[in-house]
Write a protein that binds this DNA or RNA. Structure first.
Lengths: 140, 140
DNA sequence: TTGTCTGCAAACGTTTTGCACGACC
DNA sequence: GGTCGTGCAAAACGTTTGCAGACAA
């Protein structure tokens, strides 16, 4: 928690209880939650919190590079505690999004073919291993 | 145009004038348009067409693998005439989305680490070469 | 007291849905 | 005549904005 306060202060963001709770949630949950998922959990600790504050905080975090928004599903935005670039797999069956480790030749490059790269995503959609195995069992 | 009719008929989609116009637009414009951009252009040829029909048609095309939706910007969905998988670059300054040719080790694989891959996107956000050059000139 | 943070409510823009009309076989 | 396609209008959805009150320095 002390660590999270530092992250915010380093970014010149006042570490309010709301912001800390949101960041704490993202720190504990690396499963790319939606704003609603964050709100639902933080609300149990801070019952007075509003969705506006969740959105405000996430916007602030994104602007400061603390959080990365993922536009993967076409509906809700997913939020990812920023680490080094990595790929994502989105399961169309169970909706889970998880990290993939892929050896990609341009990862972590800042420039490519003359363009400035600020963010990079490799992502895959399909049916995840778990869902495939469940399906197979049902048809045994 | 004959070719486009075949594409639709092969997918068991009745080639109405609306669907053909939409597909024709996508065939001529590989710049990843939004539904509105498609609507605006097709409307000049078929003034009675509605946005609902554009959305209905796109949905049908996507379900049949003729069109790929791109969830890149976080706001409007972009639509891409389906070809072989490729990367995209989204310029945060001018909003353009263009194709990138990248040598990626898992492209065109159908399975990866046990997961079934139906679709794959590699995409980059940042500032494109053209915008960087314009910026440089302004600060000469 | 000044500026910042919060949170309600309303607005927003894109997409989806319900439904009725019309076209076609 | 029955199915399919269209298109209007309304709803839905996640997100953003305006604003007023609360809080903190």
């Amino acid at each position: 928690m002390e660590n999270l306060i530092n992250i915010l202060e380093d970014a010149n963001i006042k570490p309010t209880i709301e912001r800390l709770s949101i960041l704490n949630y993202l720190d504990r949950n690396h499963n790319h939650p939606t704003a609603s998922m964050i709100f639902d959990e933080v609300e149990t600790k801070i019952p007075t919190i509003s969705k506006t504050t969740v959105y405000n905080s996430l916007k602030l975090f994104i602007e400061n590079g603390i959080v990365t928004p993922l536009y993967i599903t076409g509906s809700e935005i997913r939020y990812d505690f920023t680490t080094k670039p990595h790929h994502h797999f989105f399961c169309e069956n169970c909706g889970k999004i998880f990290d993939l480790v892929v050896d990609c030749p341009i990862f972590s490059k800042k420039h490519f073919q003359g363009h400035l790269i600020r963010q990079q995503h490799g992502y895959f959609r399909g049916i995840c291993k778990d869902c495939l195995e469940k399906e197979a069992k049902e048809h045994h």
